[in-house]
Design a protein around this nucleic acid. Structure first.
Length: 480
RNA sequence: CGGGGUGUAGUGUAACGGUAGCACGAGACGUUUGGGACGUUUUAGUCCGAGUUCAAAUCUCGGCACCCCGACCA
């Protein structure tokens, strides 16, 4: 029987995932609420996870020739007004600076909700010839989108992200880049965050303001809702035209280039929390865990402490990220509970008993499986154990995703299936925007994506929304 | 921004219109430490403003804040 270690005062995840989420964010010390409405303070433990995200993605980007740069926080309103769809999409959530230096500004500045406009204005100067292409720029930055309802990490008014922006000679190249970014994100979620996700194309009504095509990563949250976890846009030459980006091609003729933009934000950490946590708190997959292992010393004498330090040194040399808890103020149980809340994948305990036996006690955070590892096997066993945990977390996430995805062929069944439990529903759809709006009104679920592997799949069925001829099977779900 | 709800120590809760109490936390001292230790002790509160009343945490009105549900959204 699996022992469950509930936490005092922690709402059960299965009972109220929203309350559980808030509790965990605060008690695992990921973030604090701030005085500024809708903003949060990311605490060191939460920020360490973000730093890992940055490090991993940044490496992949750079291998592909993407260079980091930094553009201004403030964007002249006139820039945003150039692309009308873009402006329309973002204007409801803009924060605008109207005064500075004690005076009213002649032209207000918007705090960037995203940086397409300010970057592309500059790109038009940078790009003259086909020799300047492709241009691949990435920026790690904060952006502000004034949201009406906010949650820590999942939707804050100010959030951190990376935004990649590339410029290409041909649309085919741009599409290739868009898909490459999407694949980075999918790989990131699967291999680093151990979360199984869907990757696909957004419907016309759900796409990015100003894009020709938006691709996205959709995460299946254990409550059956969908979280848009990253996006990648094929901007075609929409922005190039309005920002006068032109290059001379090999024949000496002027052409507009084709562009992409793609981003992943601190929202990803919200997805991580929701995906892996349990009634004991957070569970952080080993590859992204700020601490992969915590050593707790049991009893306060110097021999035990020395022994623990020696072990930590050994493991650190093997590349294991490790914390040593030598707290002698609190009881062992108290300390254990705190580390469990923080989701450290493996806990080691060292006390007089272990020293005598020449072992170390280990406990897995995800399964609570425990045992003793002989000291001389520790260096080999811990990396193995971490790898196993990483893989099992992913398998569990995949199973969860599959269990929460169902195929449905009629609107009645569609509605019925949502009565007891939210699902990702894969259903035939005519791809008409009005029909989509109708489905959303009647069932609260909207199209999430057309999965990449189903873009070519022709089907004969009837659309679940209007009964007309369906084109392809899309994923529908309620958004976060 | 629409609909609903709630505001009491740092947190969670209690008090018929009649002495604001309890628990946790935090601080001090001592004893403890193999799954959220114990004793002694200290600490701190009715969101703001008006009204009704002999008397308001409690009733009324206004403001503000927060929460839940919608619309918007990485």
């Amino acid at each position: 029987m699996t022992q469950v270690f509930e936490k005092k005062g922690l709402t059960k995840k299965s009972e109220n995932i929203s309350e559980w989420y808030h509790d965990v964010v605060l008690r695992a010390e990921l973030a604090n609420y701030s005085e500024v409405k809708g903003s949060m303070i990311i605490r060191p433990y939460g920020y360490a996870i973000w730093e890992h995200v940055q490090k991993t993605l940044d490496e992949w980007f750079k291998e592909d020739g993407v260079q980091n740069a930094y553009f201004p926080l403030l964007i002249p309103m006139s820039y945003l007004q150039k692309e009308k769809d873009h402006l329309k999409g973002f204007s409801p959530e803009l924060a605008i600076v109207t005064h500075a230096g004690g005076e009213e500004l002649a032209e207000p500045y918007a705090i960037r909700p995203t940086s397409e406009t300010i970057m592309y204005k500059t790109f038009s100067d940078w790009i003259q010839s086909y020799r300047d292409l492709p241009l691949k720029i990435n920026q790690w930055a904060n952006v502000v989108r004034w949201e009406k309802r906010t949650y820590p990490f999942l939707r804050t008014s100010e959030f951190l992200w990376q935004e990649g922006h590339t410029v290409h000679q041909t649309e085919a190249e741009a599409i290739e880049m868009t898909l490459k970014a999407l694949k980075w994100y999918k790989k990131f979620y699967e291999e680093q965050f151990a979360i199984s996700v869907y990757a696909g194309i957004k419907s016309e009504s759900e796409k990015f303001a100003g894009a020709k095509t938006t691709y996205s990563i959709e995460m299946v949250i254990p409550d059956g809702k969908a979280l848009q976890a990253a996006t990648s846009h094929n901007l075609s030459d929409n922005f190039a035209k309005v920002f006068d980006i032109e290059f001379l091609n090999e024949e000496g003729k002027k052409e507009h280039p084709f562009q992409t933009s793609w981003g992943l934000s601190t929202r990803s950490i919200g997805g991580l929390i929701l995906s892996h946590g349990d009634d004991s708190g957070l569970i952080v997959p080993p590859r992204v865990a700020p601490h992969q292992v915590v050593i707790l010393i049991v009893g306060g004498d110097a021999t035990v402490k020395d022994h623990a330090m020696k072990i930590s040194h050994q493991l650190r040399q093997r590349g294991v990220r490790i914390a040593v808890d030598i707290d002698s103020e609190h009881s062992l149980g108290f300390r254990i509970n705190n580390w469990e809340l923080k989701g450290v994948p493996v806990r080691l305990e060292v006390g007089a008993k272990e020293i005598e036996q020449g072992t170390v006690k280990f406990v897995r955070r995800d399964t609570f499986e425990k045992g003793f590892i002989p000291l001389d096997e520790l260096e080999a066993k811990i990396p193995e154990l971490l790898e196993a945990i990483q893989n099992e977390l992913f398998e569990k996430s995949k199973k969860n995703r599959d269990n929460l995805t169902i195929n449905v062929d009629s609107l009645d069944l569609f509605k019925e299936s949502l009565e007891k439990q939210r699902y990702f529903i894969r259903a035939p759809w005519c791809e008409d925007a009005e029909c989509e709006a109708k489905i959303k009104e009647e069932t609260k679920v909207s199209t999430r994506v057309l999965e990449l592997e189903r873009t070519e799949e022709a089907i004969d069925g009837a659309c679940v929304g209007c009964g007309g001829p369906a084109k392809r099977r899309w994923l529908f779900a309620q958004g976060y």
